[in-house]
Design a protein around this nucleic acid. Structure first.
Lengths: 227, 227
DNA sequence: CTCAACAATATTGTCGACAATCTGTAAGCG
DNA sequence: CGCTTACAGATTGTCGACAATATTGTTGAG
């Protein structure tokens, strides 16, 4: 039994880094199910890596909030809960709202160009979407990602893009929260960009918060329906 | 030359954990200066620990944003910048504002009792404060800490209390940003608690954001004065 | 039959050594 | 004289082995 190859395509920086990226993907996409107990020796053998390198990857995953580690017990993939998802949206509302406020003030011309371009691409895809919102989630993702970049606040960018968003994607993949409100989301995105372009930070923040809260309410409703 | 003892008083969970706590304290308080290059072998010898255990501590410090690590180069204590401090306050404004909104809705009776108690203690100390705002910073800290706890949003609590606040304290210690606006801060704290008690989340958020933004403006003014 | 103490097993925490990579210095060349 | 290139030293990345701890299964007493 051979250890498997882990993405040789990546610019291989360090083994631990590659393990981290690979495992992060598998956890986010659910190939390693939520709540799973992680066995260090087993995973190490699987990738033909030492336990040390693997442990480094695990610790990074922990700092992402994708794993929970307890001393002398081991690591488990984080459990997905309704409460956790709703909490996440509250934090996003606060953070992305601020990102919009800042983006309205500090965005570059390039930021706006890319945002508009993204929106157009978005609209085109939406045209041939008749019930199947397949690529919508990733598109929505790019939009939020790009807005945050425009805020020019490195701490904010890091917190959202390198931390929370992986958790968001994990929930989307595994609880399948693809927004069935694609058309509405598109209009909201459009208005947000306009506010940013107009330099109206206050409005931009308000719209983004309302946008995210609408998603949250949508989820909350769906969850209580399945109760 | 003997390796030094690291807080035996702590409930020793694991060596790496203790190393982490110790180093975190030294970085926050500036005993290990900002921008310092970290030598793994040197620190390992200093604590009579193996490099492996030390590396684990370093990685946790990195995830706190207190260290920056680059592959095959090593770790440096993060550099303190004016921009970094202002960024930090923007994120706090967003997050703690939301914390207040949630606290107004979800706080327990115990939360309110502790907050009021803290405020009273705070007021008493302020009486004998005539220019020396020594303990003020920590008191202010406890207040914000307690508010966040009352939000009952685990992700928000973790992000602020286990991440950002260490960075805040590092800036306070090393750039000495003890608020010279103690009396005013006290009144603002008082009003925030009242809003939370009244269950007025909207007002509580507004007041907290204004409170933090006032601190930020204060800092910004001081920085431009020293230009 | 249930519960508690104990032994066996497996897993995690810690360590020291080796290999890969970077930094700084000095020699060679244009 | 300045720039590139080779070398030496040191540091980081990776590995396998040992010790400490938790978990599981078993046995015996009540």
């Amino acid at each position: 039994m051979e250890g498997e190859q882990l993405q040789a395509i990546e610019t291989s920086q360090s083994l631990a880094e590659r393990l981290f990226v690979t495992l992060r993907g598998e956890i986010v996409e659910g190939q390693i199910a939520a709540g799973t107990k992680i066995s260090e020796p087993e995973l190490a053998r699987r990738f033909n890596a030492s336990r040390g390198s693997l442990r480094e990857a695990l610790m990074r995953l922990e700092s992402l909030g994708l794993l929970e580690r307890r001393v002398n017990v081991g690591a488990r993939v984080v459990e997905l809960s309704e409460r956790g998802l709703l909490d996440l949206y509250e934090v996003r509302e606060a953070l992305e709202g601020m990102a919009c406020r800042l983006a309205a003030q500090y965005h570059t011309d390039e930021d706006l160009t890319e945002l508009r371009q993204m929106l157009a691409h978005h609209e085109k895809q939406e045209g041939l979407q008749a019930g199947q919102a397949y690529f919508q989630p990733e598109g929505d993702f790019d939009f939020h990602f790009r807005i945050v970049q425009a805020s020019k606040n490195d701490l904010l960018i890091d917190t959202l893009c390198n931390r929370l968003y992986y958790r968001v994607r994990m929930y989307r993949y595994q609880l399948g929260m693809a927004s069935p409100r694609a058309k509405r989301a598109f209009r909201e995105h459009s208005h947000i960009i306009e506010a940013i372009e107009a330099g109206d930070g206050e409005l931009a923040e308000l719209l983004m918060r309302r946008h995210i809260r609408a998603s949250r309410n949508n989820i909350e409703k769906k969850l209580t329906r399945d109760h």
